[in-house]
Amino acid sequence: MKQLFSVSIALLVSLTFLVLLLFFMGEDLNALSEALQHTFLNRFGLGYTLFYTTPLIFTGLSVALCFHAGLFNIGAEGQLLWGAIAIVAFSRYFPNLPPWSAIPLSFVVAALAGSLWGFLPGYFKAKRGTHEVITTILLNFIALSCVNYLILYPFKNPESQSAETSVLPAGYQLQTLWFPTTPVNVSLIIAIAVAIAVYVLLFRTSFGFELRTMGQSPRAAVFSGVLLSQRTLAVFMISGALAGLVATNDILGNEHKLIEGFSPGYGFTGIAVALLARNHPIGIIFSSFLFGSLQNFSRELEFFSQNISKEVSLILQAILIILVSTRDFWQRRRLK
C-alpha cells in the first residue's frame, strides 16, 4: 500500500514535469491527451502497451534476480541481443520446423544464448573478483558490435537496403493475441508465468534462500556453506537467460526478423522496473506495465507533438528512479 502510494506520487510528479515541458516547448496540450488515449484507451494503443510490457518483465526479472543475490546485472542489454541473434541463427539452420517445435525451441535457444553471455561476467566475478558493473557494461558494447556484424554480413537480408536479417520462416512466426493489428503475443503470458516461477524460486526454495542470504550478507552465506562463486555463476546465467527471452517478443511476435537497434534500451529500463517493484517478481509485472506504457506513450507523443522526441521516456524514467529510490529520504523529511 505504502509502495503504491509512493509510486503514485512519483507518477504525479513526472506527469507534472511533462505538462510543464510541453508548455515551455510551446506544444499543444492536445498532443498529450492524444498520446494518452493511444496508450491506454483504445484497443490498438493498449495492445502496443502490452507488447512493450513483455520485454520489460524479462529484463526486470533479470535485474531483480541478481539484485536479490547482491549483484548488479547492467548487462541485460547485451544478453538480450545474443538471444535475438540466436533465434535468427537457429531458424536459418532449421527453417522447416513446424510451429509446435519451432516456437518452444526458439524460447530455449534465446534463453541459452542470453545465459552464455551472462556466464562471462559471472565467471569474471566468481573467479577473478572483477566488479560486475563494469564488465557487464563493457560486454554490452561488445555484444552490440558482434550482433551488428552478424546482422550486416552473415545473416543480412540481401533484398533489403536497411540493416536487418532475412524474414524468419513461417513456423517461427507468432500470431497476435486478443488485440488484432497489434503485436501482442504469447510471450506476454510466458513472461507472467516466468515471473511467478522466479517468485517461487526466490522465496520458496532453498536455492532462493541461499541467494537471498548471499545478497543480504555474503559472509554469512559463506559460513553457512554456500559456495559464492558457484552461486554467482548460476545467478548470472539465470539472469542472462531471462534477458535472452526478451527477443522472443519482438523477433517471433512482431518483426519476424532482427533489425539493427531493435531494443530501445530494454536492459537499462529493466533496472528501473526492478527498482520500482522493489525487486519483487510479481510487482515487476505491474511496474513493467507502467514502463511499457511510458515507452508506448513517448512514441505516440513524438508522433502527435511538433518537437518532442521519444527520448522523453528516458527522462521520465530517470525521474521515476530518482523519486522512488529517495522515498525514505522524503519520508524522513516529512517526519522531522
Partner: peptide, 26 residues
Amino acid sequence: AKTDHIISGVAINILAAGLPPLLSQA
C-alpha cells in the same frame, strides 16, 4: 538521500542519455 551509488549512477546516465536528444530536437 542515501541512495545506492550504483542506482543513482544509472539514473543519472539515463537522464543524460535522454536530455540531449530531447533538447537537440527542440
